[in-house]
Computed example of a mutant assay.
Amino acid sequence: MTTSTNQPPRRRRHGCATALLAPFVAAARFQRPGRQDRLTDPAISGAQVARTCIGLGATVWLFFAYTLRREAGGVINDKLVEMLIAAAVLMAVGPLVVGAFVCSARPPLRSRYRRRLPGPLTAFGVLFGAAALLVFSFRGSLNGPFIAGGGVAGSLLSLLTGMASLFLLPFVLASSVLSVHHSFRTADVHEVLPPLLSPVVVTVMSALQALDGPPVNAPQSVWLLFLAGAPLSVTALSFWELSRLRTRYGITLRGALGR
């Protein structure tokens, strides 16, 4: 007598793919907003994705249309540094804006927003800690005394820092991109905060790019248009987000502060 069991087929686990994706999955886990009752608007999310795609498309066009001023490796390094700087700008400006927002809110909203702070604080802390560990593993002037004079313990520390850097490098890069995109999970505190923060970060980044100069041999008019396009488009999108929150959902900055 044979019996049949209707069990679902087991999915095959691909250990290598899981290991490669682990830093990106972890970055998304820490940097995406997680408040359950947070308002999500498909139109706003779609506009943000479209803006990102247009920005990437304009960057790709700029690099393919004009010749590079230096080696490709140096340009790529500059772009990676720019992502880290954008995250650093958010780490500096974000707490000031969020702190001013919470302190300006009237009771009982103030206490409600304080209870929502663990989300942004987690995003800040994880990226800062991971970046610090990555710098420690890469800078010989920092970890050299521990490794050189530690004997077996130093060799073990060297091995551990090398293995950790394989995870930390993609994790920090992915977290930097996602932290800027999600404005360090400030939507967990309130939905009006991301559109208030985004123009500040993009404007600072455009100013830094203007000081650094163009990476390609493009005409000055094209480069200025490229620099102005990012802050203008992000600011326009932020105004549209705030307007949509007001007209469709009745969410305003004054209402969020209880005033």
Rank of each mutant, 00 (worst) to 15 (best):
G55C: 05
G55P: 04
G55A: 03
G55I: 02
L56N: 02
G57L: 05
T59K: 09
V60D: 02
W61C: 03
L62G: 12
F63D: 08
F63I: 13
Y66M: 11
T67K: 13
L68Y: 08
R69A: 09
R70N: 07
R70M: 10
E71K: 11
A72N: 13
G73K: 14
G73F: 10
G74W: 11
V75R: 14
I76Q: 05
N77S: 07
N77E: 14
K79N: 12
K79W: 15
L80A: 08
V81G: 13
V81C: 08
V81W: 11
E82T: 14
E82Y: 14
M83P: 03
M83T: 05
L84I: 10
I85Y: 12
I85E: 12
A86E: 13
A86R: 02
A87R: 01
A88Y: 08
V89R: 03
L90Q: 05
L90F: 07
A92Y: 01
V93I: 14
V93E: 00
P95V: 03
L96P: 06
V97E: 04
V98M: 06
G99Y: 10
A100I: 08
F101M: 10
F101Y: 05
V102F: 04
C103N: 03
A105G: 04
A105E: 01
A105D: 04
R106E: 12
P108S: 03
L109S: 01
R112I: 03
R112V: 06
Y113M: 00
Y113L: 02
R116M: 05
R116P: 00
